[in-house]
């Protein structure tokens, strides 16, 4: 067992974990933050995307021990004071989801994407979504949701 400490959505957590525990399982099963999803479990679908030390990463492809000392934001940390984050609001306004399974990962990726490219073209958005799969929407409204958030000039 190894002891890990990390900050998730502003709260510090310390736990003893097996080194082979994946970060996504730590977040979901140990911390109970089930908004981060496991879609493919093979680094392809992006449903498990979180923000770790400022970078969007697929946390099914990391061990919890590797996040020792890290600062993490998950989908649960996006809204503040009952106000949806502008990207979440964008998904709401543009009907950017159907079943919602891919949505947390899409939003966590979109945050990083817009931070690096605040005024993207549609083509850039579509390319930027390369690491996230959606089985429902056909992506059109996801693209619109991100355009909507970009228009509002999303805060980081």
């Amino acid at each position: 067992m190894a002891t890990v400490t990390m900050t998730v959505n502003g709260t510090s957590y310390t736990n003893d974990v097996e080194p082979r525990l994946l970060l996504v399982h730590y977040i979901r099963d140990v911390l109970g933050l089930t908004g981060t999803h496991v879609g493919c479990d093979t680094s392809q679908c992006g449903a498990c995307t979180i923000r770790l030390n400022g970078r969007a990463v697929k946390c099914c492809t990391m061990f919890a021990v590797q996040a020792n000392g890290a600062d993490i934001t998950t989908i649960e940390g996006m809204a503040s004071d009952g106000e949806l984050h502008p990207i979440q609001q964008g998904f709401w306004d543009e009907h950017g989801l159907q079943c919602g399974f891919c949505t947390p990962g899409m939003i966590m990726l979109a945050q990083q994407f817009l931070e690096r490219n605040p005024n993207p073209t549609e083509q850039e958005i579509r390319r930027g979504l390369a690491g996230n799969l959606c089985r429902c929407t056909g992506y059109h409204n996801i693209v619109k949701a991100i355009q909507n958030a970009a228009r509002k000039g999303q805060p980081a």
Binding site: G46, K58, Q112, G128, A130, G131, N132
Partner: peptide
């Protein structure tokens, strides 16, 4: 290479 998340790591 790959996608944004993979390139971040």
């Amino acid at each position: 290479v790959a996608d944004i998340q993979v390139r971040n790591k």
